[in-house]
Structures are given as structure tokens and as C-alpha cells.
Amino acid sequence: MTAITQRRRDSLRRYFSGLALEETLSGFLFATPFVVGFSVFIAYPMIYSIVLVFQNWDLLTPPVFVGLNNITKVFRDPVANLSLYNTAFYTFLAVPVQLGISFLLAMALNQPIKGRSFYRAGFYMPMIVPVVASAVVWQRVFHPEFGLMNEVIGWFGMEPRKWLWDPALAKPAFIFMSFWMIGRQMVIFIAGLQNIPQSLVEAASIDGAGRLHQLRHIIIPLMTPIIFYNMVMAIIASFQIFAPAMLMTNGGPQNATLFAVLNIYRNAFEYYNMGYASALAWELFVIVVGFTVTQFYVSRRWVYYETG
């Protein structure tokens, strides 16, 4: 017993001695800005929002405990369900097409074509345009009278549409708009394509594989980790769509573009139902996390890791 206590004391003394103590302290101090920032701006609000889920709070009077009321309301509220439907509609139609277009673009811009850097920069450019500016631009594109979109469909003899003012077309318009923002995915795909060993492609070529066979049996399998990464990130980003809907349609027409985050924002900062907004936020969090975990689980069947 005494020997064990002595060993423990020695261990603690070594731990807190000179250099070890200094290094431990330095480590903590180096990490302090992040730890403070994370604690104050992320962890604390998240934890506090869990507390708020069980309370009603209008910002003006102290919160009132309401038990599970906000959670049950989440499942009964038709507007919350509609916002989830809108978000799912947007995500599941936009993401596959985004991935397809960005992959094809990456393939094209990985070829030794003239002005390749210029095109790459051009397709990435929308990513650095402020959201507000791009929202204004797209409002003009979809304008029913003067918009570019109606001009283009007019070339094919189609009638002008109201796009953002038509409940049936507003979501498809947002999906179309999202294709403008594929620069990041494209750049990551290009990086992935450049990492594919040319020896494999050449070997397949010698064995008589054509371009399509090379694509199907070599390039796509080797790109699956990148496709998976882009897919996970794109789905998470799509679930969080907010600014364009807030700026361009404010959730309308007839709640056709009321996405989940916009609904959370409205409940929190327009209706001042902080507790209910917290419940909605946690519902979305659970959905996104659940979906991401499922993707990781399913990825075992189709994602190929060379080291795995």
C-alpha cells in the first residue's frame, strides 16, 4: 500500500517537475484561444439551447419551464414538417446533379486544354461572390419580365414563367441556382483526378480499355473517396440552406421555399419562440447527423480506399 502511494507521488512529482510542467502549461495556453472561443461561441450556446428546448423564452421575460411541449410541437407543427419537406426536396434533387456537373467539369478541366487555368478560376469565381450579391443577380435572372431565364426559354418557344413567384417553380429555381456554386466540389474533384496514377490508366489502355471503360473501372472507383467526401459536405450544406431563401423569397411563395433553417430563424428572431426554435434546431441536427452516419455506414459498400 505504502509502495503504491510512493510510486504515485513519484509519478505526480515527475509530471509537475520543471520541463514537463512547463510543456503542459504551454500546451494548455496554446490551446486556450481555441478552447475559449469554442466554449463561448459554440459549446455554451449548444448546451444552453438544450436547456431552452424545455422552456418558453421570448427574450423579454425570464424563460418558463414547459417540459416536453416544444418537442411534441415539433412533430405536430405542419409548418415545421413542410420546411423539412422543402429542405429534403432541395437536397435530394440538387446534390446529385451538383456532383454530376462538378465531376464532369473536373474531368474536362483536367484535360490539357488551352486556357485551362482561366476556366478553372472562372468556375470557382462564384464561390467568392458574397451571398447577397449573388442573390440579387439571381433575382434578376429569374425576373418574370426582364429575366435572362425567360429570355432563354423563349428561344425554345416556351412561355415566360414566374419562377420565384410560382410555388411550383420556386424550389426548382433554387436547385438550378445551386449549380452555380459547384466550384469547390470541382476543385476537390480536380485534385482527386490528379492523384490517380497514370500507370493504371496506361495499363488499362494497353489492355484495350476505351475511355468509358477507363472511367467506369479505374477513375470512378479511385475517385469514390472524393465523391463520398463531396457528397457528405454537399448534403450537410444543402440541409443548411438559408441566406438565398431569406434574401430572394423570404420563404415564399406560400412557404414553398421555407427551408428548415429559415423556419428556425423565424421562430427564434421573428416570433421570439426561442425554446421552440431550439427544439427545431436540434431536430435538424439529429436529422443531419443521422443522415451522415448512415452515409458512412453505407459507404463501406461502395467507397474504395487503397489503404483500407
Binding site: 504551454s26 495556453l29 496554446f30 486556450t32 484561444p33 475559449v36 472561443g37 463561448v40
Partner: peptide, 19 residues
């Protein structure tokens, strides 16, 4: 190392002061 240490300490103190 010392520079980063002092800088980190300063940021931490400033962050706490801001709170």
C-alpha cells in the same frame, strides 16, 4: 515558442475580459 505563448496568453486574457 515564447512569442506564441505570450500571444496565446494575451488572446485568452482578452477573450475572458470581453466576456
Amino acid at each position: 515558442r515564447q512569442f506564441l505563448l505570450i500571444g496565446g496568453s494575451g488572446v485568452a486574457v482578452a477573450a475572458l475580459a470581453a466576456c
